[in-house]
């Protein structure tokens, strides 16, 4: 479900929603969502001074906390 959330946010932001991929990796302390987007959409998901990816993480963390989990999002090149 959290993966769907990451997917939904990323697809809403980018110009190439078909190129969005989200991989879920179970870490020791937290779930890590690895996000891949089209190269030309990289700037969009990162945002000025990283504001957009920071906001994505904040919302995913809030949703995870609701289920008593920890989660974060990393962008892969």
């Amino acid at each position: 479900m959290l993966r769907d959330l990451v997917m939904f946010i990323a697809k809403s932001i980018v110009d190439n929603p078909d190129k969005v991929e989200v991989n879920e990796v179970e870490g020791e302390r937290a779930v890590v969502f690895e996000l891949r987007v089209a190269p030309e959409d990289m700037g969009k998901v990162i945002g000025k001074k990283g504001r957009v990816i920071h906001a994505i993480r904040a919302l995913v963390q809030a949703a995870a906390a609701k289920e008593g989990k920890r989660a974060t999002v990393e962008i892969l090149e």
């Binding site: 946010i9 904040a58 919302l59």
Partner: peptide
């Protein structure tokens, strides 16, 4: 969120979209 932090993030994403 704490002091409206999460809400501000939500607002930023909404405006990007």
């Amino acid at each position: 969120g704490r002091r409206g932090e999460t809400l501000k993030h939500l607002e930023l994403l909404t405006n990007v979209v």
